[in-house]
């Protein structure tokens, strides 16, 4: 068998960080799903050769600094307004490829109106939705997506549906709207799921090149700091608790 030091040579290279990921060390907590999804978006843009023409819309939430990590053009939206800004950018520059990137507090709470109306208008954009069931950035408050019984800093004994209402499956709701062409839910908690998420992102960007309308890719994610678990425990907890409520797979593909 070859020895490790002889294997480590350029002709044997099979995986390296894409050049689209900048050298800035991500500010995310160890194990945060945001980093994994950033990487996949960067790889898809790289592999499609669309670096020069892609514009990302960053949200408010933990991923507010997303523009520091992927080497493309970006705009920063006010909290929840990424789909509105993406609409403007895409309409003013239809030759550009535009995607929004948002957390669940951003997309499904403060920005619900912008989300629904962009999808209903069928804006020709990609929307990436990181659903970690919590407001990560501000200290782990309950989000519309927090599961029944799931603790958060504003419901330390768990979400009580009688008091707090039901978790919002906004992705299923958006699939009902005629403007969406591709609505799909994925995760990045296993290597197989990471590969599927990347394929879905690729398809979403290709839909935009084909002028098909709004593609929404939800990634059920973890927030180990907010959930108060290790990253590996968070992945397991997510699989056991989040995925039954937010099942993976295509909801709409036209």
């Amino acid at each position: 068998m070859a020895d490790t030091y002889t294997i480590i040579s350029p002709e044997n290279l099979v995986y390296k960080k894409t050049d689209l990921l900048l050298d800035n060390v991500m500010h995310y907590c160890p194990g945060c799903s945001h980093g994994t999804v950033h990487k996949l978006i960067a790889e898809v843009i790289d592999e499609m050769g669309i670096q020069e023409s892609t514009i990302g819309i960053a949200p408010v939430g933990c991923s507010v600094l997303a523009y520091n990590y992927i080497d493309i053009d970006w705009q920063e939206a006010a909290h929840g307004r990424a789909p509105a800004l993406a609409t403007a950018v895409k309409r003013l520059m239809p030759d550009k490829i535009v995607f929004s990137y948002q957390g669940d507090g951003d997309l499904a709470a403060i920005g619900t109106a912008e989300t629904i109306h962009a999808c209903n208008r069928g804006e020709n954009i990609v929307m990436v939705f990181i659903n970690n069931g919590i407001y990560g950035m501000t200290g782990g408050q309950m989000a519309p997506t927090t599961l029944p019984g799931m603790p958060a800093s504003t419901c330390p004994t768990g979400r009580d549906v009688k008091r707090d209402g039901n978790p919002l499956k906004i992705t299923e709701l958006l699939a009902q709207l005629p403007g969406t062409c591709f609505v799909t839910r994925h995760s990045v908690h296993t290597p197989g799921n990471v590969r599927k998420t990347k394929k879905a992102l690729r398809k979403a960007f290709e839909n935009q090149l084909a002028n098909k309308g709004t593609s929404l890719v939800e990634v059920v994610s973890t927030c180990s700091s907010g959930w108060k678990m290790t990253p590996v425990q968070s992945n397991k907890w997510m699989e056991e608790n989040m995925l039954p409520y937010y099942p993976l797979g295509d909801i709409k593909d036209e």
Binding site: M1, A2, T4, I7, I8, S9, N12, L13, V14, Y15, K16, K17, T18, L21, V25, M26, Y28, P30, G31, C32, S33, H34, G35, T36, K39, V188, T190, P191, V194, R195
Partner: peptide, 30 residues
């Protein structure tokens, strides 16, 4: 770090899962 280097198959699972993309992978066909 690689604690058990002989067992590495170069499958890249670790690298694609790493949220901070810290891992580079090499593989030879024997």
């Amino acid at each position: 770090y690689m604690a058990n280097p002989d067992a590495c198959t170069g499958c890249s699972n670790c690298a694609i899962m790493c949220p901070d993309t810290c891992i580079t992978v090499y593989r030879v066909k024997q």
